[in-house]
Protein backbone atom coordinates (compact mmCIF):
# COMPACT_ATOMS: atom_id res chain seq x y z
CA UNK A 1 0.00 0.00 0.00
CA UNK A 2 1.42 3.36 -1.05
CA UNK A 3 1.16 6.06 1.60
CA UNK A 4 2.55 9.54 2.06
CA UNK A 5 3.70 10.25 5.60
CA UNK A 6 4.56 13.75 6.73
CA UNK A 7 6.20 14.94 9.92
CA UNK A 8 6.06 18.51 11.20
CA UNK A 9 6.35 20.80 14.20
CA UNK A 10 9.76 19.32 15.01
CA UNK A 11 8.83 15.62 14.69
CA UNK A 12 10.84 15.48 11.46
CA UNK A 13 13.96 15.79 13.63
CA UNK A 14 13.26 12.24 14.82
CA UNK A 15 13.53 10.89 11.29
CA UNK A 16 16.72 12.44 9.92
CA UNK A 17 15.01 15.82 9.38
CA UNK A 18 13.09 14.43 6.41
CA UNK A 19 9.55 15.79 6.40
CA UNK A 20 7.89 13.82 3.62
CA UNK A 21 8.22 10.05 3.25
CA UNK A 22 6.60 8.17 0.39
CA UNK A 23 6.37 4.63 1.66
CA UNK A 24 5.01 1.27 0.64
CA UNK A 25 3.65 -0.92 3.41
CA UNK A 26 2.31 -4.46 3.14
CA UNK A 27 -0.47 -5.18 5.62
CA UNK A 28 0.64 -8.14 7.73
CA UNK A 29 -2.57 -9.30 9.29
CA UNK A 30 -3.56 -11.35 6.25
CA UNK A 31 -6.82 -9.56 5.53
CA UNK A 32 -5.04 -6.90 3.52
CA UNK A 33 -6.24 -4.19 5.83
CA UNK A 34 -3.96 -1.58 7.37
CA UNK A 35 -5.09 0.43 10.37
CA UNK A 36 -3.41 3.36 12.10
CA UNK A 37 -2.27 1.13 14.97
CA UNK A 38 -0.26 -0.95 12.47
CA UNK A 39 1.07 2.16 10.79
CA UNK A 40 2.30 3.65 14.09
CA UNK A 41 4.34 0.58 14.93
CA UNK A 42 5.68 0.49 11.35
CA UNK A 43 6.71 4.15 11.61
CA UNK A 44 8.34 3.57 14.96
CA UNK A 45 10.36 0.67 13.60
CA UNK A 46 11.21 2.01 10.18
CA UNK A 47 11.28 5.81 10.27
CA UNK A 48 11.98 6.99 13.81
CA UNK A 49 15.76 7.14 14.19
CA UNK A 50 16.08 8.69 17.65
CA UNK A 51 14.18 9.42 20.86
CA UNK A 52 11.12 7.25 20.08
CA UNK A 53 9.54 8.53 23.31
CA UNK A 54 9.18 11.89 21.55
CA UNK A 55 6.89 10.21 19.04
CA UNK A 56 4.99 7.53 20.95
CA UNK A 57 3.71 6.84 24.42
CA UNK A 58 2.32 3.34 24.97
CA UNK A 59 0.71 2.20 21.75
CA UNK A 60 -0.34 5.66 20.58
CA UNK A 61 1.30 9.00 19.82
CA UNK A 62 2.60 11.03 22.75
CA UNK A 63 0.52 13.92 24.13
CA UNK A 64 0.86 17.05 22.01
CA UNK A 65 1.01 15.23 18.66
CA UNK A 66 -1.85 15.70 16.20
CA UNK A 67 -2.48 12.94 13.69
CA UNK A 68 -4.22 13.85 10.44
CA UNK A 69 -5.45 11.37 7.90
CA UNK A 70 -6.12 13.12 4.59
CA UNK A 71 -6.16 16.52 6.32
CA UNK A 72 -8.62 15.33 8.93
CA UNK A 73 -8.03 14.81 12.68
CA UNK A 74 -7.85 11.05 13.33
CA UNK A 75 -10.24 11.52 16.27
CA UNK A 76 -12.92 11.91 13.61
CA UNK A 77 -12.04 8.68 11.81
CA UNK A 78 -11.53 6.28 14.70
CA UNK A 79 -8.01 7.08 15.97
CA UNK A 80 -5.94 3.89 16.17
CA UNK A 81 -8.68 1.93 14.37
CA UNK A 82 -8.75 4.24 11.33
CA UNK A 83 -8.50 2.06 8.21
CA UNK A 84 -5.97 3.34 5.71
CA UNK A 85 -6.43 3.22 1.98
CA UNK A 86 -4.14 3.39 -1.02
CA UNK A 87 -2.56 6.87 -1.52
CA UNK A 88 -3.68 8.16 1.86
CA UNK A 89 -1.72 11.07 3.34
CA UNK A 90 -0.97 10.80 7.05
CA UNK A 91 0.47 13.83 8.86
CA UNK A 92 2.06 13.74 12.31
CA UNK A 93 2.49 17.19 13.73
CA UNK A 94 3.75 18.33 17.09
CA UNK A 95 1.91 21.27 18.57
CA UNK A 96 3.96 24.47 18.81
CA UNK A 97 4.03 26.77 21.82
CA UNK A 98 6.43 29.48 20.72
CA UNK A 99 5.64 33.02 19.77
Amino acid sequence: MQLTLEFGGGLELLCDSVKIHNVSIDPENGVGKLIMKDLLSWVRTNLIKERPEMFMKGDTVRPGVLVLVNDCDWELSGQLDTTLEEKDVVVFISTLHGG
Partner: peptide, 20 residues
Protein backbone atom coordinates in the same frame (compact mmCIF):
# COMPACT_ATOMS: atom_id res chain seq x y z
CA UNK B 1 -10.30 19.07 23.84
CA UNK B 2 -7.37 18.85 21.44
CA UNK B 3 -4.59 18.42 23.98
CA UNK B 4 -6.10 16.91 27.16
CA UNK B 5 -2.67 15.84 28.40
CA UNK B 6 0.23 18.31 28.29
CA UNK B 7 3.21 17.31 26.17
CA UNK B 8 6.52 16.34 27.81
CA UNK B 9 8.60 19.42 28.61
CA UNK B 10 11.27 18.26 26.18
CA UNK B 11 8.73 18.72 23.38
CA UNK B 12 8.13 22.38 24.30
CA UNK B 13 10.83 24.29 22.52
CA UNK B 14 11.30 28.01 22.90
CA UNK B 15 12.24 30.57 20.23
CA UNK B 16 15.17 31.54 22.48
CA UNK B 17 16.58 28.01 22.17
CA UNK B 18 15.45 26.75 18.78
CA UNK B 19 15.39 30.01 16.84
CA UNK B 20 12.64 31.51 14.72
Amino acid sequence: CLFPTPPPTTACQRCADSGV
